[in-house]
């Protein structure tokens, strides 16, 4: 009966929720930021090591729903090794897809693995779960050093 929601809760999401990648404290991070979704209480601490404009390492800690955990996990896998600029572009793309603005025009292939989260578009109440990690990353790259909130 719950099969119709498989567009959002795909096996990849369950996999990353059960075994989140890069789920650790990074002792030598040069960027660290607390992300918070006050609506549901999701908290994330994002760590990054950025050297010469390149994301050498990225990791996270925290507690959240399956969507936010899987999104953070997938994000860390993908942006590791990218330049700040590349990560920024990917964030823009991801944001456009998840919020559905002109989403239909976006080529899902560009998103690669992240495409599994495109289904969140149909569940507006959950978009912030999917974007929390990305908002945190964006702030970390800008080195704002403050708590980010999705509100």
């Amino acid at each position: 009966m719950l099969d119709q929601i498989r567009d959002l809760y795909q096996e990849v999401v369950f996999d990353h929720n059960r075994n989140p990648r890069n789920f650790r404290v990074m002792e030598d991070a040069n960027r660290k930021i607390e992300g918070f979704n006050p609506l549901c209480g999701d908290r994330i601490t994002l760590y990054a090591k950025v050297i010469d404009g390149k994301i050498e390492d990225v990791s996270f800690q925290g507690s959240g729903c399956a969507i936010s955990t899987a999104s953070a996990s997938l994000m860390t896998e993908i942006v590791k090794g990218q330049t700040e600029q590349e990560a920024e572009q990917l964030f823009d793309l991801f944001h456009r897809i998840t919020t559905g603005k002109n989403g239909d025009e976006v080529n899902l292939e560009e998103l690669g693995k992240l495409a599994v989260l495109a289904g969140v578009r149909a569940y507006p109440a959950r978009v912030k779960c999917a974007t929390l990690a990305w908002h945190s990353l964006q702030s970390a790259l800008k080195n704002d050093g403050e708590t980010v909130s999705t509100e």
Partner: peptide, 20 residues
């Protein structure tokens, strides 16, 4: 997580609150 419970139960027509 309660938010996952809320979204999934909603698929079954069940309205509960999930959050703080």
């Amino acid at each position: 997580h309660p938010h996952d419970i809320g979204t999934l139960l909603d698929q079954l027509g069940i309205a509960i609150r999930a959050g703080h």
